[in-house]
Design a binder for these strands. Structure first.
Length: 258
DNA sequence: ATGCCGTGGAAACCACGA
């Protein structure tokens, strides 16, 4: 079973690239972030024509998350991260797919920091910790997948010294990520490649992709049941080099089972 | 050190991203 995560940066503007990548990579399950469209404008027909079913949680202009599945039915569990009735940003959706509890998330960017956006990021992190704590000890496989907007360590940034004050790398942000990990989650990429430089994002400008000036901010966090099933993981880096592409590349894992 | 690029939406610029 292959599960992927892809921040598309606009699902409609990215549709040709998304469909091409789906046809090449053929993941069984996909978590999408940054749909940037309201629910009624989600391109469900094109996605169904590509052989996938989907659930989505959209929002006009910003954010938006979705879960796609090729052959397994998707049973939605909930949408929206619990803990703040006034938070209307579409950044979280969870579902059961082929026995795996999948949480698709788009954690806030948080810049500029300090400031209200950074406060919102840290608050969102706290709410995620609370939700994750309820899921970590479930008897079945659980996966937190998506764009965390966090580089966990210096290995995950092309020039760490330049990112120290950035909301994606500030000490508070890394501490929040570490606190979440301490619940018992396993970072799939780091479990398989503890010392490799692996990026999932490259800026559009300054030829960041050409210079490999990247960041690793899209992650798969697995509970112990799922970790025991982990077979492989990788980044479809070449997709970042395609025409009209997202600034993120798709990331994926494969796990044993049906 | 820096939205230099890109997307979406409203209105021919702005918000936002990381």
């Amino acid at each position: 079973m292959k599960i992927a995560s892809y921040n598309v940066n606009g699902v409609n503007g990215r549709l040709p690239v998304l469909l091409k990548w789906l046809s090449v990579s053929r993941p069984d399950v996909v978590c999408l972030q940054e749909l940037k469209c309201p629910d009624e404008k989600f391109p469900i027909s094109a996605i169904e024509n590509a052989g996938y079913t989907a659930i989505w949680h959209g929002q006009k202009s910003w954010n938006g998350v979705a879960i796609l599945s090729k052959k397994y039915p998707i049973t939605e569990i909930s949408r929206g991260l619990p803990g703040d009735e006034e938070d209307i940003q579409s950044r979280f959706i969870e579902a059961e797919v082929n026995g795996v509890h999948v949480c698709c998330l788009y954690l806030p960017n948080g810049n500029p920091a300090p400031g209200p956006k950074f406060d919102y990021k840290l608050e969102w992190f706290k709410r995620l910790e609370k939700r994750a704590k309820k899921l970590i000890n479930e008897k079945h496989p659980v996966l937190l997948a998506g764009d965390f907007n966090v580089m966990p360590t210096e290995l995950d940034v092309y020039k760490p010294e330049r990112w120290l004050d950035d909301a994606l790398f500030r000490p508070e942000t890394r501490a929040a990520f570490q606190k979440l990990m301490k619940q018992g989650w396993t970072d799939a990429i780091r479990a398989l490649y503890p010392d490799d430089v692996i990026y999932t994002f490259w800026d559009y400008f300054r030829n960041a992709y050409g210079r490999n000036a990247g960041l690793r901010i899209d992650h798969f966090l697995m509970n112990d049941v799922l970790t025991k099933q982990l077979k492989s993981a990788g980044v479809d880096k070449e997709v970042r080099g395609w025409e009209k592409t997202s600034d993120h590349a798709p990331v994926w894992i494969t796990v044993s089972g049906k």
